[in-house]
Design a protein around this nucleic acid. Structure first.
Lengths: 375, 375
DNA sequence: AGCTGATCTGAATCGCTGC
DNA sequence: CGCAGCGATTCAGATCAGC
């Protein structure tokens, strides 16, 4: 069941000792302290929904060192911002350490905290791949009429660095979006109705995220079996969706009341069977067929004439799988690029051959060959 | 973010002497130096479109061979993130000084720079009122299929402090949005066609903003006669829209070529025509639901079996919204076309699912989803 | 004039493998 | 590490040529 679009087994990275880590479990405690106990480079993806309420987080964000004698609100505010930045830097540093070199991190937030999180990510060397807007289909109105209705939240998706080879299931996203590239703005309903977890009649968690959001994140950027860590687990949306999608999960949560709800919820989540988990693969993942193979196996004959779709150029197939055009010759790609004056060219779709149904790309021959030879 | 800079609290409003400042003029020069020459508290609103620090690599080619005309101007190049931060802190400090106590600032950016801008705004004591998402109706695709299509830009709207009494024309925004509160996500086309300014046959500025964007900003947050300053004036979109809306404007621009175009444009600016207004009011895009959304949101489960109305064909729903039938798979439309041997097919009406009331087209699920999520 | 199809373009951090 | 070769990859809207 190969569903990955990027093979992440590079010899160089394999030299890093990747310690196995027990998964499908909830760790109770402070996320910075608990992440510190995990080995280096053991996590494929981190999804984090950190706290952002600067007023209620006194314990969490208390600045170390002596307090300034605050006399005015601005001073308090700056102390709180600095403390929040320190907190952010600490948990992101641990996240970076335990994330595999080709792993990615997602962080969700609002304008209260996302700019600080984004800047800290960049400061620590993370490479932002996209910022994603979750556009809420049904947001709460602005009752006072003093601002624009706050109808979205922002997610940041980042890799460990500019050259990391991250997982992105491009074709699966395109399929999910009716054959159009998935954009950076996602329209999804907020979490409510049956999905919203209750405890003693009131909502179990103030900011429970919809499973649809995690579904898209995990489907886009992980492979089956990958280990997903959520350092601010809450009621375990990440764990529930990971289980459903056949991914392993680790949650860290401080509050007992959230943890209990999360564990029960995940226990009840039903995993999808393997056939339903399959996703559309990009052509990048298809087994490679050399052009020469089509000649060796008789799908094309040396001496056959290929042309582009508009019959502007014609080239002759040679026995070794090269094409020739007068004095010029080369691979299907090289010659295609040359005649167009382009830096590169996909010869499979550029060159055509004559059939009873008209001019067809030679790629159709490759498809026919694949169908005939694949198990 | 490093050490917080402590900023003195702003003086009481009564103590401020508001110096008059000449308006409706373009100042040629560096914006930091030129803002430094303006008196304190003389500006009602600042709209800023600073360099994004894109950090692009080599050339990017389109699938058909064309080359993307990227932003490669010197003004967008910074040696390090720290250098960009210093630049940001300097121009924002001047902006804060010349802005009236109840004035507001708007800054636009992308994920490359907006987190640094937002954090610096907060560090200097600005109070963020909203972050606004400009959802581009027609963004450039991701040609290589490596990330999500970067389909939006972010604007930050901030006041001088938590207690500032800023201008927000709530009713005007609600009217503009068909009697619904204006949300924090705005759908607008990019600047192109007739609106895009040309010079010698090529675009006059690589990043010209659409007038519809400035129209909404100025209409929401200024009063007639207010003075609007744009420190990165470019080709003068801010000035042109300000003139049309009866606001005063001051632009600062370093490049002569942009300045010339801007002055001519503003001289020719006329009241907005009907088509421009139509674009502005078309924010409520037609609701479009992808098949994949129904799976993400639980209206259909991966593994569910769909069939045509006469139960001749059966297909299984997969996690990414594709259907599978034996070895074949594809979107609802593609697989529907394939089994019928038709060139195309509307999968929404072709495929059905079993309900207690019998076989129903999956389009009914889409209607149910829309009813549940539309305002 | 009116329609069709080809062409062009927009703030872009845009590949992978083997030698 | 660099370099070369293979070969994968695009959406909406404006403009223009051709009929």
């Amino acid at each position: 069941m190969g569903v990955m679009e990027r093979v992440t087994t590079r010899p160089k990275k394999a030299a890093i000792s990747v310690a196995p880590v027990a998964a499908d479990r909830l760790i109770r405690g402070d996320c910075i302290a608990e992440m510190a106990k995990l080995p280096d480079a053991c996590i494929d993806m981190i999804f984090a929904d950190p706290p952002y309420n600067l007023q209620l987080g006194g314990d969490l964000f208390r600045p170390e060192g002596g307090r300034v004698d605050a006399v005015d609100n601005d001073w308090d505010k700056f102390d709180t911002l600095a403390a929040y930045d320190r907190f952010t830097a600490l948990w992101l540093a641990q996240a970076r350490r335990i994330l595999k070199p080709d792993g990615t991190i997602w962080v969700i937030g609002s304008y209260h905290n996302i700019f600080r999180v984004g800047a800290t990510l960049q400061d620590q060397g993370f490479w932002i791949l996209n910022d994603i807007i979750w556009r809420k289909a049904n947001p709460m109105p602005n009752f006072k009429g003093t601002r624009f209705t706050n109808a979205h939240e922002t997610l940041i998706w980042a890799s460990q660095g500019e050259d990391a080879r991250y997982t992105f299931n491009y074709k699966a996203m395109k399929t999910l979006n009716d054959e159009l590239q998935m954009r950076s703005d996602w329209v999804l309903p907020i979490c409510g109705g049956q999905e919203r977890l209750k405890r003693n009649g009131t909502k179990a968690h103030p900011t429970q995220k919809p499973e649809a959001l995690l579904y898209r994140v995990l489907l886009a950027c992980t492979k089956p079996g990958d280990i997903v860590l959520d350092p601010f687990f809450g009621t375990g949306t990440t764990g529930a969706v990971a289980k459903r999608l056949g991914r392993q999960w680790i949650g860290i949560e401080r509050e007992d009341s959230y943890s209990e709800v999360a564990l029960q919820r995940i226990a009840e989540a039903l995993p999808l069977d393997e056939s339903a988990l399959a996703i559309m693969q990009s052509a990048r993942q298809a087994p490679k067929v050399a052009f020469g193979t089509l000649i060796e196996t008789g799908y094309l004959t040396p001496g056959a004439v290929l042309s582009d779709a508009k019959r502007r150029w014609h080239a002759v197939v040679r026995a070794d799988g090269s094409l020739s055009m007068g004095a010029d010759s080369g691979s299907i790609h090289k010659l295609g690029a040359m005649v167009q004056g382009a830096p590169s060219c996909n010869g499979w779709t550029f060159w055509h051959h004559d059939t009873v149904d008209g001019l067809k790309p030679i790629d159709t021959l490759r498809q026919t060959y694949l169908l005939a030879t694949q198990p």
